[in-house]
Amino acid sequence: MISEEEVQHIAKLARLGLTEKELGRFQKELSAILNYIEKLKEVDISGVEPTSHSIEMENVMREDEEKGKLKTKNKKLLELVPETKDGYLKVKSIL
């Protein structure tokens, strides 16, 4: 069983606000899922390379050049921003 502190720590890493009620629920649910996942510990993986990508492929390169049509796209993207100022994204103070 993972501890309440661990749940809080993970939530903080994930930048996820939690309610009190959720804290206990996550503790229970995550423990159950992690317990199920423990099955993998029984598998012999010695000498096995990890797979991050199922289909073999090579690096894809392209020229580092400007693409057209960016202006209209930028306008649409900026319209989606919750708060802007002078064409910049506005955020709350960090310090």
Binding site: R15, L16, V91, K92, S93
Partner: peptide
């Protein structure tokens, strides 16, 4: 909560925006 989507900006600082928007 900064670039697009739901933004909960009542909190006091940037971290609050992250936590609350995602909550």
């Amino acid at each position: 909560g900064i670039k697009y989507g739901l933004s909960e900006s009542k909190g006091k600082d940037l971290l609050d925006v992250y936590l609350k928007s995602r909550e």
